[in-house]
Simulated scan of single mutants.
Amino acid sequence: MHIDARGLRFDITTGGPEQGEPVLLLHGFPQHSGEWADVTPTLHAAGLRTYAPDQRGYSPGARPAAVEAYRLAELVADAVAVLDALGVDAAHVVGHDWGAVVGWALAAGHPDRVRTLTAVSVPHPAAMAYALGKDRRQQVRSAYMLLFRRPGVAEKTLLARDASGLRRLLRSVGDAARISTYAEPMRQPGALTAALNWYRAMSRSELAATAPVTVPTSYVWSDRDVAIGRTAAEACAGYVRGDYRFVELSGVSHWIPDQVPTPLAEVILARARATG
Rank of each mutant, 00 (worst) to 15 (best):
203 S>V: 11
167 R>W: 00
173 V>C: 06
218 S>T: 15
177 A>V: 07
123 P>L: 11
225 D>T: 08
171 R>N: 12
206 E>M: 03
238 G>M: 12
224 R>M: 09
154 A>Y: 04
203 S>Q: 10
240 V>L: 04
217 T>Q: 11
204 R>P: 14
236 C>S: 12
208 A>E: 08
209 A>E: 10
180 S>E: 15
212 P>S: 10
244 Y>K: 11
230 R>T: 12
204 R>L: 14
164 S>H: 13
184 E>L: 14
208 A>P: 03
243 D>T: 15
167 R>F: 02
169 L>M: 14
248 E>A: 13
137 R>A: 15
231 T>D: 15
196 L>G: 07
148 F>M: 15
143 A>D: 00
181 T>W: 04
209 A>N: 12
152 G>I: 11
155 E>A: 06
139 Q>S: 07
174 G>C: 13
242 G>V: 11
226 V>G: 13
173 V>K: 02
159 L>W: 05
242 G>H: 06
214 T>E: 14
212 P>H: 05
254 H>C: 01
183 A>L: 09
211 A>P: 06
221 W>E: 09
125 P>A: 03
130 Y>A: 12
221 W>A: 03
174 G>E: 10
159 L>R: 03
232 A>C: 10
170 L>E: 08
227 A>W: 12
143 A>E: 00
141 R>C: 05
234 E>V: 12
143 A>K: 00
241 R>T: 14
232 A>L: 06
148 F>N: 07
217 T>K: 13
248 E>Y: 00
247 V>R: 00
138 Q>F: 02
174 G>Q: 14
223 D>H: 07
129 A>Q: 00
168 R>E: 14
243 D>I: 05
140 V>Y: 08
174 G>F: 13
175 D>A: 09
214 T>D: 14
158 L>F: 03
154 A>W: 05
